[in-house]
Design a protein around this nucleic acid. Structure first.
Lengths: 202, 202
DNA sequence: TTTTAATATTGAACAATGTTCAAATCTATG
DNA sequence: CATAGATTTGAACATTGTTCAATATTAAAA
């Protein structure tokens, strides 16, 4: 059972990658609503029906795109966490929060797609849920440093609260349907909130 | 120019009200994605094309639904603000935040529709933007009490940040696609965040 | 009341979209 | 190189929102 990659499977992988890139390009240009089966098929030189050999359906396509985005987001958060020394956990959390903001800003449409995708079947596959929950991992160390006496459950709860709060500020702040808050002011507000929350933890 | 309401306009108003109620019922039962032109038309006993005499299109329908929801939300926030005396601005803000959470929980699908509606034309009409911004008005008094020395611009910025943070906690917390946080724990977290943020304002 | 011009309503037709599947084509193996 | 199996195709279908010419209704004028 050597399982050497046959020509067909290699092409299939190339098709998948091309599909992802084409989809990402279209999302970046026109938002997640701009994903059209026919256009994507044309982009990658495949018949309409051929899409369904590469992904199960549009839900599947969007979930896989979300997965890719989350992998990149995860790396961005990791870098953000590394921007401060572990001896200063508040600064680490600040770094994570600002990295989140920065990622959202620089990948606005892909980031929005994470929340805007409307799936026919609302139940998320396990691998997607795990990826979402995995994003919290960067907060483990600083949270433990900040709340040494707390139980793990409590730390997770607070981490989630903090992350959600920052997400809310970013989400509303980047909503261009409303009057926009200046970029630097937004970063300032995020820093303030993280610091204020952490101050209170002690 | 007495402008007595003619039979036609009275029926038109009744149709509009029936349409809104039918749409709200369907959203509550199956989410905003469950709004179908044909089903709504059937609900209110009108031909398919007749819908377009009552609302301009589906975007218009959803924006008007959002408007109704925001009016109710506004009342809920007002009541929440009134749950504490003005002498204790932090408690007033807490009351507003908890009222927001409560409204979202009790009107889950209608509240979600505010964010999930995907409009063909993403530009919001002025009356809708004004309604959104108007929701912040309940924070004016307590914010002024908490930041007497700050400029109005600064107060508005902080109010928005606080509101966004609370929104984020509620939004993520009610996302049933992930592991849910127990209701009481969520309320507790909201209270904590509001208090921590306010503590830092002094 | 009757007539009639304006108005409102209808529903068939259209356009855009995701999805399916029988037929055509291609691929890998004996 | 022949052929069984896998892959690809694209026409057909189902579901949507939207339009508009034809029909029916309403309200003003006679």
């Amino acid at each position: 059972m050597s399982n050497a990659p046959t020509a067909t499977t290699r092409r299939r992988e190339a098709q998948f990658e091309a599909l992802m890139q084409s989809a990402e390009k279209r999302i970046c240009e026109n938002g997640v609503g701009a994903l059209k089966a026919r256009e994507l098929a044309a982009d990658i030189g495949v018949a309409l029906g051929g899409l369904y050999n590469i992904v199960a359906d549009m839900d599947d396509l969007m979930l896989r795109l979300a997965q890719r985005t989350m992998v990149r987001l995860d790396a961005a958060l990791e870098a953000g966490a590394a921007s401060a020394t572990a001896e200063r956990p508040v600064e680490v959390l600040e770094g994570i929060a600002l990295a989140y903001y920065d990622f959202a800003r620089q990948n606005l449409q892909l980031w929005r797609a994470l929340f805007e995708m409307r799936l026919k079947n609302p139940a998320l596959p396990e691998w997607n849920i795990q990826a979402q929950l995995g994003l919290f991992r960067h907060m483990n160390a600083p949270m433990t440093a900040l709340m040494p006496a707390a139980s793990e459950a409590e730390r997770i709860l607070v981490a989630r609260t903090l992350f959600s709060a920052v997400h809310g500020i970013v989400f509303v702040g980047l909503e261009e349907r409303l009057i926009a808050v200046p970029q630097e002011a937004l970063a300032q507000q995020i820093r303030w909130l993280v610091r204020a929350a952490c101050k209170d933890l002690k």
